[in-house]
Design a protein around this nucleic acid. Structure first.
Lengths: 182, 182
DNA sequence: GCCTGCATGTAACTGGTTACATGATTGC
DNA sequence: GCAATCATGTAACCAGTTACATGCAGGC
């Protein structure tokens, strides 16, 4: 995934590996960690694939390398960005972080698909909860499984939170669209 | 972490590696994935450390191995369980899943500590949001950064959700306690 | 002259995954 | 007799971390 994050950062403008690390820490750092030990090898791979190009900054006499996005890199990035959103927190958020670069149609499709997945999960969790409640009623000390059972409730909290967020996202994107066409 | 999950499962009773995989998938599977390729080596390590013991089931003629918790394993598990809760979703939830085995006092302490951390994070995010809002007001096309900025809102949603969940957890644990003493 | 921050890189290690190999048991 | 599921295990691989090594630049 790191490779696509790098490509995404380069969509905004050229920068060095060091800058990328800083940008990642300050933006998606909350849910994605990048270390130099993973960043620099990733940049090497991207350069080898010719998805990005390097320019050694000579004027400043620093041994600093500025990376730029090549057309093949841009294509791969947009392709990756348009893939369906999976029910995995990090991937979901990283993609959404770059969703300003995705076309309105695909974006709306992916977000609605994701909503359906969330609803399915919530339904599934609800069913599991019913079963567990029945099982708990038949054992002597149900309170001894309080925390064990509570993680199901966490799941529901979590998916409902994501649902709210995605709903807001869709609404907000529509309003953005309207403003643009004014 | 997998080693501690195995120990936690064995707290409830003896089982085979295969059973562990099934149990994990059905309980914490939502936020923790275990594969046989990681499970079996982990069981090997635990046996070598003498934290668990193995019994080859012979009566059934199956080549099935039943694992049990040894005292050293139980100790290590309880020690691990009582460690402070970090702001990392998986670790947090896996520990809470096993919190029925933790003493009331440590449990209450760890949950309250975690609440403080959540409040700090929410405050920090709020501050970042203010700064970003100011920066957005000064650029020509703020709506072009709609999704990029929205992940901050996700962060707030997320931490507030966890806060609600932990609040509920603390309240529920207290009520459990009262019922026990009736 | 020294500390901090900028800047790049690598080697050893860790904790996993995927895919494969093997074989017993159960139900139809 | 065959498919599904139970059951264990390993080897190749992968993505990442930590710790280290190196050196320049700027401020005090």
């Amino acid at each position: 995934m790191l490779e696509y994050i790098i490509l995404g950062l380069l969509m905004e403008g050229n920068m060095s590996g060091y800058d990328m690390k800083k940008t990642i820490d300050l933006s998606i750092g909350m849910f994605y960690k990048a270390s130099f030990g993973s960043l620099y090898p990733a940049l090497k791979r991207l350069t080898d694939k010719e998805w990005v190009s390097v320019a050694e900054e000579e004027g400043n006499s620093k041994n600093k390398k500025i990376y730029s996005l090549l057309p093949a890199g841009r294509e791969s990035f947009i392709l990756w960005l348009g893939e369906p959103l999976a029910l995995s927190r990090n991937e979901f958020l990283v993609r959404v972080f770059f969703y300003d670069y995705l076309d309105d149609k695909t974006r709306h499709l992916r977000l609605t698909e994701y909503m359906h997945k969330l609803n399915q999960e919530i339904g599934r969790l609800h069913a599991v909860e019913q079963i567990v409640a029945g099982e708990l009623a038949e054992i002597p000390d149900p309170q001894k499984h309080y925390f064990r059972v509570s993680v199901l409730s966490y799941g529901k909290h979590f998916f409902n939170m994501e649902k709210e967020y995605v709903e807001q996202l869709i609404k907000g994107a529509e309003q953005n669209h309207e403003n643009k066409n004014q």
